[in-house]
Structures are given as structure tokens and as C-alpha cells.
């Protein structure tokens, strides 16, 4: 391989859960929440993972954060593994990647003021203390569009949008390189969503951050992402640059997903046209077949991600040639 290692590499990641057994004499069935997922995040990019509930997108994010032990596979940060022997500890890891959660209220301690919460991170990691730490907190609050006075307030004193700003401030306090955004907008009103999207885009540019965004909102994903991975039943079925995935959606599941978005422009134009798919090799069959729900009890059929164009891969049936 030439060039520097990518910022983050998810290699052959699998997370399987044992399903409850009907009786102890039955063998445990495995739920393949995440099954052989490969993804790459480059410096300064936003990688979005889309799919419906249960497709494994959040589990993938948790595995990246180290909050979920993978069954198999590795997550590499600048070429070094984040799990397994010799992996960095929790403290070190906290300065690499941080997470912003869907419901900011549920992830904030109601009994601790915002300022104290943010200061605690600085002192725990021995980064700053005293007035220097307070200055940093004030600076961070200003950066996410709040005022330094807000440090004295408690979570319940803020609106939903402000709380998500606090969630972002909390995640940025240790100056991580990666933010994992798990449905950062779905609890917010349309007008507040626009503010948070703008804030995230601005911060990304200014702090040279990289994002992994988990979302089901395809319009937002198209607007902010550099790369997009579509997941379906634990597997990536289509992956590529945002332009490839959105202007030539090729896997039938991606096409169904885009077609399901209620689109106001289509109403005005009185017609709905999906962009054309990219051509696939003759005789190739997409995997899995989306006309039937895959049965989680059976082994998935052999399949591979085939490159069908520059920066565009789609899952086809059969072993990799």
C-alpha cells in the first residue's frame, strides 16, 4: 500500500449476539448484527452509515467507540489496532474518538452543571486546571454557539437544540480527531436541525474533524457526507462516494430506500424519477435478495462487494473473483 494509512479503518468487523434459546437443549442461534463490515474513514471526511433500524449501523458505531466488543475483526486508527492486545486504554481512546448521541438529554447528568461536566474531562485527563480550564470551557461553549454564562446552568434549563450543542461541546472537549454522530438530528425540529448541521459542517472545517454519522435521514446524509455506506441486515450492500451512491444508486435496497423518502420536489414536479443505476457485469446478481426478508437463522449466502465504478462498490452474490 502506498501513502499514509487512513485515519480509521474497520476491517472485517463482525458483532454476533446469541439469540435466546427456546430450551437449553437447542443450540444457540446467532444474530449477525454486524457481519464482515469493511469501512474506511479518511482524514477530514464525513462517512455516513445509512439503513433501517436493526441493520447494524449503531452497533458498528459502538464497536468503533470500543463500547461493544467485536466478535471478529479489527478497528485500526492510523494503522494501529484499537482492540486486541496492545490496544490503547480507555483514556487514550477517549482522545481519539468521541460520540454524540441522539437524545442529548438522556446523555447528560441532570444534577451536574454544564460547566462542571466539561471541566471534569479536563481534570481527569490532566489537560488543564483552574482558570485555564475555565477559559477552555468558556471558549468551547462559544465555539458551539452558546454563551460562557451557560456553564452555570443545568441540562433541564436548555432547549433541545441547545442540549445537542452541549453534547457536541462535551464530545469536543478533549480535542478528538473523530466524532461518531449517532442520529444527531432525529430528536430535533426542522429549524433546529439546520442550525446543528451548519454547526457540524463549520466545526469539521475549522477543526479538521472526521465524522462517522449514523442516520436514516437520506436528505441530510446526501447534503453533508463525503462517503456513504448503506447497510442491510448487518452487511454493507453499497458503498462509495456520496455522488456515486446518490446519483447512481445501484443495489435494489439502496434504490428502495431512496424511493421511500417522501420528497416535496417530486410532488411539485408531479413525477418521481429515481436516478439510473450504474451498470453491473452481465449475469451478476445482487445480494441479498430484498424481495424476501433475510432469515437471520440461516447462514447468509456467499457474497462480495464488487467494484462497479470509481469509488463505488455494491454487494453481489457469489465469492469474490
Amino acid at each position: 500500500m502506498t501513502g499514509p494509512a487512513p485515519l480509521l479503518e474497520i476491517r472485517d468487523l463482525s458483532v454476533h449476539f446469541a439469540r435466546p434459546r427456546p430450551t437449553i437443549f437447542h443450540p444457540a442461534e446467532m444474530l449477525r448484527a454486524v457481519d464482515h463490515v469493511d469501512l474506511t474513514l479518511h482524514e477530514g471526511e464525513c462517512l455516513s452509515i445509512v439503513g433501517e433500524s436493526g441493520c447494524g449501523k449503531s452497533t458498528t458505531a459502538l464497536a468503533v467507540m470500543g463500547l461493544q466488543e467485536p466478535t471478529a475483526g479489527t478497528v485500526l486508527y492510523r494503522g494501529k489496532p484499537l482492540n486486541g492486545p496492545g490496544a490503547p486504554g480507555r483514556k487514550e481512546r477517549a482522545r481519539i474518538a468521541q460520540m454524540v448521541f441522539q437524545d442529548p438529554f438522556a446523555s447528560l447528568n441532570p444534577r451536574i452543571s454544564i460547566g462542571r461536566m466539561l471541566l471534569a474531562q479536563l481534570s481527569l485527563h490532566g489537560i488543564a486546571s483552574g482558570s485555564e480550564a475555565r477559559d477552555r470551557v468558556a471558549e468551547m461553549l462559544t465555539r458551539v454557539g452558546l454563551s460562557p454564562d451557560h456553564a452555570r446552568r443545568f441540562p433541564h434549563e436548555f432547549s433541545g437544540g441547545q442540549r445537542q450543542r452541549i453534547g457536541i461541546a462535551r464530545a469536543l472537549m478533549l480535542d478528538p480527531r473523530i466524532l461518531v454522530l449517532d442520529e444527531p438530528l432525529s430528536a430535533l425540529d426542522v429549524s433546529i436541525q439546520a442550525q446543528i448541521i451548519n454547526l457540524l459542517m463549520e466545526l469539521q472545517e475549522r477543526l479538521k474533524l472526521s465524522y462517522i454519522m449514523i442516520s436514516h435521514d437520506l436528505s441530510v446524509v446526501e447534503h453533508v457526507s463525503d462517503r456513504v455506506a448503506v447497510m442491510y441486515f448487518g452487511r454493507v450492500v453499497e458503498e462509495g462516494g456520496w455522488k456515486q451512491v446518490f446519483t447512481t444508486p445501484t443495489h435494489p435496497y439502496t434504490r428502495r430506500l431512496i424511493d421511500s423518502v417522501p420528497d416535496m420536489d417530486a410532488v411539485l414536479a408531479q413525477r418521481r424519477e429515481l436516478p439510473p443505476p450504474a451498470p453491473v457485469p452481465d449475469g451478476a446478481r445482487f445480494s441479498p435478495d430484498i424481495s424476501a426478508r433475510p432469515d437471520p437463522r440461516t447462514m447468509p449466502e456467499p457474497s462480495h462487494l464488487a467494484t462497479i465504478g470509481p469509488d463505488h462498490r455494491v454487494r453481489l452474490a457469489g465469492k469474490a473473483p
Binding site: Q193, A194, N198, L218, I258, V261
Partner: peptide, 18 residues
Amino acid sequence: ARPRLGSRVEGGRKRLTE
């Protein structure tokens, strides 16, 4: 305030109007 599906191809990754 809402990004529209398909608008980025022409409009680019602009900041949204708040």
C-alpha cells in the same frame, strides 16, 4: 431549512439557511 434530496449535485455542500 431542509436539505432537498438531489440538490447537492448542483448546489454543492452549502450551509443551510437557518
